[in-house]
Structure formats: C-alpha cells, structure tokens
Design a protein around this nucleic acid. Structure first.
Length: 323
DNA sequence: GACGGCGCTAA
DNA sequence: TTAGCGCCGTC
C-alpha cells in the first residue's frame, strides 16, 4: 500500500463532501505534470492526507483505482482553467476534529520529505504547484502519530469503504454521448444505430475488428462467441470514425477485456505486454494473465499502434511512462 | 499580510 | 524535466 499527500485548498470542500480527489490530466499548456500523473498509481486502501490552509483537516482511504471523469460541477470557478475531463479517485474521508499544522512540526517532518516532488517546502510552507504527492511510509507514520497525539481518531487502511463510482461515472458519461449522437442531425439513422452498438462491441465495429484480429492476444481463445470486441481508444474518447474503425479494436476474453478496458494492462508498439504496478500480481494470474517476465503478443498494424499510444497515454495506470 | 492545484523561464 | 521567482486573487 502507498501513502499520498493532496493539496486541496480551493477544492477541499467539494472533494470532501463528494468523497473523491480529482485532477486534470495535463497542465494548461498540455504538458505532463507528475502531480497529476500520480493519480494513476493510487490503489484502493491507500492513505491520503489532505492539506488545506496550512493544516491537515482530514485523512482519507482510497476506495477505487484512478478513472477518467468529468470535472466536477461543484468546483465552480475554482478550476476554471482545468480541462473538462480528468482523473478521479474515490476517497472515504475522516475529518480531523483537531487538525495539525505541519509547519509547527517541520523539524521532525523535514528529514522525511521526499527529495523530489515534495509536497512541502523545507520551511514547512506549501507549494503552489503541487497536487497529489507520494510520501514515504515513515512520513505517513509520523503524521498519524502527530494527529493521534493531538486527539484525533486513527484512520487505517482497513476502514476501507466499498464505494467505487467508476462504473456509474463512465455509464453516465457514455449515456450523454449516446444522447448527442441520437440528437445529431448530420448522422443518418443507420449509422447512429451502428455507433450505439459499437459501444458494446457489437454490429459493424465487431465485423471490422474481425478483419484484423482472429483471437484473444493473451488467452488465445479464437471462438468469437466468447470474445469481446474491445475498443483500444475508449468509445467515449473516440470520434465517430474511430468508434467504427476496425484497427481501433482487439478481440479479448472477458477477463482480459476488463483488465485492458480499465487500464491494468496495455501493450507497447512491439507487442510486449505492459502490466500496471497497481495491479496485484496474484489477481492478475488468477484472471488469466501469465505472470512471466515478458510476454509478446505479436505485431500490431500502424493503425493499431496509433490507438495503443493513446491507451498507454490516457488509460494505462502507470505514471511517468513516455510513449 | 500570507499564501497557493499558477505561469514563466532558466539551465 | 525541475525548481525558483514573481503575480495577484482569496482567505
């Protein structure tokens, strides 16, 4: 399990009440930001320390992995220059009745601050450019001691709640897109039907995928009755052309589709399997992904590679990967 | 007056 | 890529 520190000044109320943390995927100028990339490495059960107005007013336990979600409406003007779609992790917060001020304990905290991507300055002040920062177990232990010493209840990872809204959020997002397709006057009704069917991997999209893929790349199952035509670049993020493009698809066994769809696995351009560090290796092998050092699933077309690059950049749950 | 989920920019 | 510095709105 891992430990995180989140600087939430303007959005604290919204994120506390909503039970989540949210970030855009990129800086305003489109550049990768490590504090946003860190969202992709959170696992259920991880501990999250809230930081607001120089204090720690709440401690949370993550209850989901990272998933794509729209910018919360309740942010209002706070996040005006952030993108409309970003990363979200569900978090069960416990408010501290006696918030502590890290700066008051900076002498003991300073030696435990990370050398890079630290959430605090050496003098104990915050850092404007930080959102979600990784901290060590040692620092997390210290913060918990300080919080308990001040009279707060201890928050532990086994306070984990089962609340994971990722399916609901994605369902709502995709339902809105279906409505847009349905109301569009430029699209013919037969194409509308195909676009909606493609969301479930059915219809024309499935036929188009069959031109490129014959079996599940990992399980080897080739009876298409048991395979899901899975979008590489997610349906919700695709253009209408991409939603029906056969090169934007793989035939996958249901278990493998579920792992690929949620970003637990991906592929590089040479066909090597990539496994997210957030995924438990035992679960992975139980779900049918062989626990070998490297697995090559064969060549991809240049079209497939284009979509795979998107999958690695926007779906795969690993921070810091350049591709 | 203090400070930060910034925006630039230097190296 | 990372950290430092200056801006300025908000608490």
């Amino acid at each position: 399990m891992r430990y995180w520190w989140v600087n939430q000044n303007q959005t604290y109320e919204a994120e506390l009440n909503g039970g989540y943390i949210w970030s855009p995927k990129r800086n305003k100028n489109g550049v990768r930001n490590q504090f946003y990339e860190n969202m992709r490495e959170v696992s259920p059960g991880d501990l999250v320390f809230s930081f607001r107005r120089r204090k720690i007013p709440a401690v949370g336990v993550a209850s989901s992995y990272c998933y794509e979600a729209p910018k919360p409406d309740e942010f209002g003007t706070a996040g005006q220059n952030w993108e409309k779609v970003g990363w979200r992790v569900d978090v069960a917060y416990t408010e501290m009745s006696e918030p502590i001020t890290p700066k008051a304990h900076i002498d003991v905290i300073r030696p435990l601050l990370p050398g890079k991507y630290s959430p605090l300055q050496q003098n104990g002040d915050g850092l404007q450019s930080v959102y979600l920062a990784a901290i060590s177990r040692e620092l997390a232990d210290l913060l918990q001691q300080l919080l308990e010493g001040a009279g707060n209840p201890r928050v532990d990872t086994d306070n984990i709640s089962q609340l994971d809204r990722s399916d609901l959020v994605h369902e709502e997002l995709e339902r809105q897109i279906e409505d847009q397709i349905d109301q569009s006057i430029e699209i013919e009704s037969t194409e509308k039907q195909q676009l909606v069917k493609s969301r479930r991997g059915q219809g024309l999209f499935r036929l188009n995928v069959q031109e490129y893929e014959k079996a599940c790349r990992i399980s080897g199952v080739c009876d298409t009755r048991f395979l899901i035509a899975s979008h590489i670049k997610p349906w919700r993020s695709s253009t209408n052309v991409e939603r029906l493009d056969g090169e934007n698809g793989l035939f996958l066994s249901p278990n493998i589709d579920s792992l690929f769809d949620r970003g637990f696995i991906s592929f590089d351009d040479n066909g090597n399997l990539l496994v997210s560090p957030v995924l438990d290796t035992q679960v992975m092998s139980q779900l049918g992904v062989p626990a070998v050092q490297s697995l090559n699933v064969g060549r991809f077309t240049s079209g497939q590679m284009k979509y795979l690059a998107h999958h690695r950049r926007e779906v795969f749950l690993e921070s810091g990967r350049q591709s």
